[in-house]
Design a binder for these strands. Structure first.
Length: 281
DNA sequence: CGTTTGTTCGGACTCCAGTA
DNA sequence: TACTGGAGTCCGAACAAACG
């Protein structure tokens, strides 16, 4: 590939650079430490990641913005196009690069989402961030992240990050928006003929028996008790919601191996969700 | 033996508390 | 309020070790 005059010898392997590009295309923004923890154990390899990132920056594929002390990395538009042309992963053509999010001071939210994605483990390829689910002309719900992994009757899971920046009632409204999305229908068939009504969400996730679980991660505070109180308040607000909602506190998740993560269900149980699905059918 | 990966160290930066 | 010095981090580069 013709590159804009590489100023010096590259100090990283093509393999790591490719991996970095791939990871950044999935999580959108990340710190060097976060990226390192995906492929090496905690603490090691950060310097190595930095080398790769520096090379990629010299090549024009990535850039960084500052969030206080930390460098927050993101793909450039050139980088995004390159990943898309690589063909290994599906890239949305007009996805934002993350540069603006960092500049706007939204880095902490994005980094928290990245934290969960990275710590969750599994394949980064299976994640997509900032996914737009349009309900109708005025309503839509944008998922912080979607995990493409079959789970509990659905082919994906939704991830929502809350950093104590919105009120509990607004958080509840977002979950109600998910509920609306789960129940929205559209009419299929010619005007005036006998068509059929179908669930909107099945257009996008046709291989799911049940509407996906919404996982809410509460962060923004180290105080776990405060987060628990928020969980309880949220549970109150969404009482009777026809949606499976699981909640967990970010500080707890960060200190626990991901296979032991404990999620607290505050919406429907799997059985209830199945019963609803049968009744609707 | 050249390349790749991990570690160490100095410098630069940011945050914060104390002071005028 | 503006300034300053200290403390703590993070970055980058040099160095060392492991690898094929």
């Amino acid at each position: 590939m013709e590159t804009p005059a590489a100023p010096r010898k590259l100090t990283s392997t093509a393999q790591t650079r490719g991996l970095l590009m791939l990871m950044l295309s999935r999580v959108r923004i990340a710190t060097a430490a976060q990226l390192a923890s995906v492929i090496t154990r905690e603490g090691t390899g950060v310097g190595y990641m930095r080398r790769g990132l520096r090379d990629l920056r010299a090549l024009g594929f990535v850039d960084y913005g500052r969030h206080s002390r930390e460098m927050v990395w993101h793909l450039t538009t050139l980088g995004q196009r390159t990943v898309a042309e690589g063909g290994d992963v599906a890239m949305r053509p007009h996805a934002a690069t993350g540069e603006r999010a960092i500049a706007a001071g939204l880095a902490p939210h994005g980094l928290a989402v990245t934290d969960v994605i990275v710590k969750w483990g599994g394949s980064l390829i299976d994640w997509e961030v900032e996914v737009d689910h349009t309900i109708d002309k005025v309503r839509r719900v944008v998922s912080d992240a979607v995990l493409y992994r079959p789970s509990r009757g659905a082919e994906v899971e939704f991830l929502e990050m809350d950093r104590f920046t919105m009120s509990v009632s607004r958080l509840a409204m977002k979950l109600r928006a998910y509920e609306a999305y789960s129940q929205a229908t559209y009419f299929e068939g010619e005007r005036g003929t006998i068509g059929s009504t179908k669930s909107l969400w099945r257009q996008r996730y046709p291989d799911s028996r049940l509407f996906p679980v919404v996982r809410v991660v509460l962060g923004g505070r180290e105080d776990v008790d405060a987060l628990d109180r928020r969980t309880a308040a949220l549970e109150q607000r969404i009482r009777g919601i026809r949606l499976r909602v699981d909640v967990a506190a970010l500080p707890r998740l960060m200190e626990t191996p991901s296979n032991k993560w404990a999620w607290q269900p505050i919406g429907l149980t799997d059985e209830q969700a199945q019963a609803h699905a049968r009744r609707a059918a």
